[in-house]
Amino acid sequence: MIFTTKAEYGVRLMVRLGELPGDEPVSLKSVAETERLPLAYLERIVALLRRAGLVASTRGAHGGYRLARPADQIRMDEVILALEGAVAPMSCFVDDREADGDRVLCSHLEDSGTGCATKLLWTRVQGGVHRALQQTTLAELVTFQTPPDPVGTGAAERRPAAV
């Protein structure tokens, strides 16, 4: 399963907003410059996040964007769903949980509605990814991104991205 740059950039934007003190809005241009992301693409991404109720905007000279809720109340499955839609590990996989409880369908016509032989594997893969996203809050990512300042100088350096 490969997430697009929409998910990558959107999560980076959310982490940046989560690092801000209080409810102070930040301009998208400053986020684009700091994160080295294309502004036009970020504008489309922030519109999706706003529509999902994850980001709030303020107009005017001192306007910008901020989190709509505290970072510890934003789960990453909400963010990914807003940006990517339903997560599916294979193109033949149809996530029908929204409409019909907890059902994942296989789109192969010849399977008589039972799913192909690999459905069990892809269902488990999807479930694992979904659980990982659901159990991760934005606050955790912000904390991971910003290590504690051991000297107390207020100048904590950014931790390099870990894989």
Results as ranks from 00 to 15, higher is better:
117 A>K: 01
110 E>S: 10
106 C>P: 03
114 T>D: 08
109 L>T: 10
109 L>N: 01
104 V>C: 07
110 E>F: 15
103 R>A: 14
96 D>F: 11
117 A>S: 10
102 D>L: 10
96 D>H: 13
108 H>T: 04
113 G>K: 09
87 V>C: 07
93 F>Q: 07
96 D>E: 13
119 K>I: 09
106 C>T: 07
113 G>R: 06
110 E>Y: 15
112 S>I: 01
112 S>R: 14
90 M>D: 04
109 L>E: 11
104 V>M: 14
107 S>E: 09
98 E>A: 14
112 S>F: 13
111 D>P: 00
115 G>Y: 01
90 M>Y: 00
113 G>M: 09
115 G>D: 02
108 H>Q: 04
113 G>L: 09
92 C>H: 07
92 C>T: 08
114 T>K: 15
119 K>L: 15
95 D>W: 00
114 T>C: 08
107 S>M: 01
91 S>W: 01
103 R>L: 14
89 P>E: 10
105 L>T: 07
97 R>K: 09
103 R>C: 02
113 G>Q: 08
94 V>Y: 15
93 F>H: 14
116 C>T: 05
105 L>S: 06
87 V>P: 08
109 L>F: 05
118 T>M: 06
107 S>K: 06
87 V>I: 15
107 S>W: 04
110 E>Q: 09
95 D>Q: 09
112 S>D: 11
114 T>H: 14
118 T>H: 03
105 L>F: 04
103 R>Y: 02
94 V>M: 14
102 D>V: 11
120 L>G: 01
93 F>E: 08
90 M>S: 01
92 C>E: 00
93 F>Y: 13
89 P>R: 03
97 R>M: 10
95 D>Y: 00
103 R>I: 13
117 A>D: 12
106 C>F: 04
109 L>C: 03
98 E>L: 14
102 D>C: 08
119 K>G: 05
104 V>N: 02
119 K>P: 04
96 D>Q: 12
117 A>N: 05
99 A>L: 12
103 R>D: 02
88 A>V: 15
112 S>M: 10
100 D>P: 02
120 L>N: 00
102 D>Q: 12
103 R>P: 00
110 E>D: 14
118 T>R: 04
112 S>G: 08
107 S>A: 13
120 L>M: 03
102 D>S: 11
115 G>F: 02
105 L>P: 00
106 C>H: 07
87 V>T: 13
102 D>A: 12
88 A>C: 09
87 V>F: 15
91 S>D: 14
118 T>V: 00
115 G>T: 02
103 R>T: 15
94 V>I: 15
88 A>Y: 01
108 H>F: 14
109 L>K: 05
88 A>S: 11
89 P>V: 12
89 P>L: 06
106 C>Y: 00
120 L>F: 03
